[in-house]
């Protein structure tokens, strides 16, 4: 019997590794190895014909920290995250509360909110280009009705990043809404009835009952929004290309530019490592700290 169990265990081990191997190989080739290779190449100098690459330790990182453009891009990205995360969460919550209440045209409302989610970022950027273009754009046309001067929304440093932020919020709020919508539908009806009997105002009911119950969903959405604030950069390629004078440049775009426009892979690698470190920190905080502090039903 024990020999049989042993054989069975060995067979399971072989099957297990066989089944895992295709995924394990691809994950190694396209995730683990590249991560290590990035770390490795971030510590080498950029080779030229005369000077071959050599090990320089943390010098690429020191270069980045001394580079004012790098800090500008970091500031831009923090600002981008700082606005898009809370605003899209707020709008998503409002959308979900409305889409869940008994209003007229509810089907149309839900569809309208969610539709931007299925569009490519590039298409979204093209749609918004039509709004932002100076002189011809819809915003200028509306402004001129009220006698406002033409504004080059994408062409001036003060407004370019805002224009990018608005497109991002437009794209992701409807996506976040559906998670709130699902969570709202799990809140028992009797809570609302009890609140009504007690004569609680709608505002108090929302603030004291609905919002605490939505906390886990909010956390989930916040982490997603944070990841989006690193990776949603496609519209930069259409709308501003990071300009004018780097005012709307974000980190991932800068990495792309560094590697594929300036052909400076080592500095791009150093920046990539910094992004991975930040993302890792977010993941660690999420697992270790926040999960315990949110209220689960």
């Amino acid at each position: 019997m024990s020999a049989h169990a042993n054989l069975e265990r060995r067979r399971q081990a072989i099957y297990g590794w066989l089944l895992l191997s295709p995924a394990a190989i691809l994950l190694t080739v396209f995730a683990f190895y590249p991560t290590i290779a990035t770390l490795w190449s971030s510590m080498f100098s950029r080779g030229t014909r005369r000077n071959p690459t050599e090990f320089i330790g943390a010098e690429n990182y020191a270069d980045l920290f001394a580079d004012p453009t790098f800090w500008l891009v970091v500031r831009n990205n923090l600002f981008y995250a700082g606005i898009t995360i809370p605003v899209s969460i707020g709008i998503a919550l409002a959308m979900a509360l409305w889409a869940n209440s008994k209003i007229s045209a509810r089907g149309f409302v839900r569809t309208a909110y969610f539709t931007p989610t299925v569009l490519p970022m590039i298409a979204a950027a093209n749609l918004w280009l039509f709004f932002y273009t100076p002189g011809l754009g819809v915003l200028d046309q509306i402004g001129s009705l009220f006698g406002l001067p033409s504004v080059n929304w994408l062409g001036q440093p003060e407004t370019a990043l805002w224009a990018i932020i608005i497109v991002t919020i437009w794209k992701e709020a409807g996506f976040f809404m559906i998670f709130y919508l699902a969570a709202l539908q799990t809140i028992p009806e009797d809570l609302k009835e009890a609140a009504d009997i007690e004569g609680t105002s709608r505002w108090t009911y929302t603030r004291r009952i609905v919002l605490p119950l939505l906390m886990p969903t909010t956390l989930f959405i916040a982490v997603n929004a944070m990841i989006n604030s690193v990776k949603l950069i496609d519209h930069l390629f259409i709308l501003t290309k990071g300009g004018p004078s780097d005012a709307s440049k974000l980190i991932l775009y800068y990495i792309w530019e560094m590697a594929f426009a300036f052909f400076d892979a080592p500095h791009a690698a150093a920046m990539t490592m910094l992004v991975i470190a930040v993302l890792g920190l977010v993941a660690a905080v999420q697992f270790l700290y926040l999960d315990k502090r949110t209220h689960y039903q």
Binding site: L27, F32, P34, T35, T38, V230, I255, A269, L279, A283
Partner: peptide
């Protein structure tokens, strides 16, 4: 656990080395 780690290493971030690969 290794597989879960890949969840936060976005493929978008590794463009440089993945391109080389």
């Amino acid at each position: 656990i290794l597989v879960l780690m890949q969840l936060f290493i976005l493929p978008e971030v590794l463009i440089v080395e993945n391109y080389a690969m």
